[in-house]
Amino acid sequence: MALIFAWSAAFLAWAGSAFPTAVFWLTLLLPPLFCTLGYFLRRQAFWILGFVGLVGLAMELAIVGKFLLGLGTLALALFSWDFAEFSRYPSSEEKEIWRMKLRALCWSAGAIGSGLVLAVAASFLRFSLNFWVLLGALVFLWLLLRLWLREMQNLYGAEAKGKRSLSRPTE
């Protein structure tokens, strides 16, 4: 299913660009190809490349002014990204896989759908902000997240700090 979403995202990006036939546009195939490789070779790195590539395609659509198509591509990329996890964890029972996929689908659809609604709603907002205010906000947000992620890292078992005795005698 992850591959279907990945190829759909690439197709949407191609359709959004009015089906160009120039050789350069073959690079559109690279992100879903990476996803396909990630699926068959079970390599997370390929999935990451594929996802980043699909986000890049969405970005390209947004830059050329096809904002809604860009959002659609991004949504499909996120669906593909969420479902990529299942290529890593096979289960012996088909029923279990479907159960988990259904749950993931509901959560993904909820998260991505609400994100799309927020994005579309935000696109209707009209306000102007000073560039430096925006940059400052971004830096502040980034620092906040860094701090929070560090907390999470400690919570999830980072390396222990402090004095520790050696388990073997020193020479």
């Binding site: 986000v55 969405a58 970005m59 947004a62 830059i63 002014g65 904002f67 860009g70 959002l71 991004l74 949504a75 996120l78 998260a111 991505i112 609400s114 994100g115 799309l116 927020l118 994005a119 935000a122 696109s123 560039f131």
Partner: peptide, 15 residues
């Protein structure tokens, strides 16, 4: 200074 890209970041941030 492209608002479209900023809006595109919203679903990603929300996810």
């Amino acid at each position: 200074r492209h608002p479209g890209l900023l809006v595109l970041a919203i679903p990603l941030a929300w996810h």
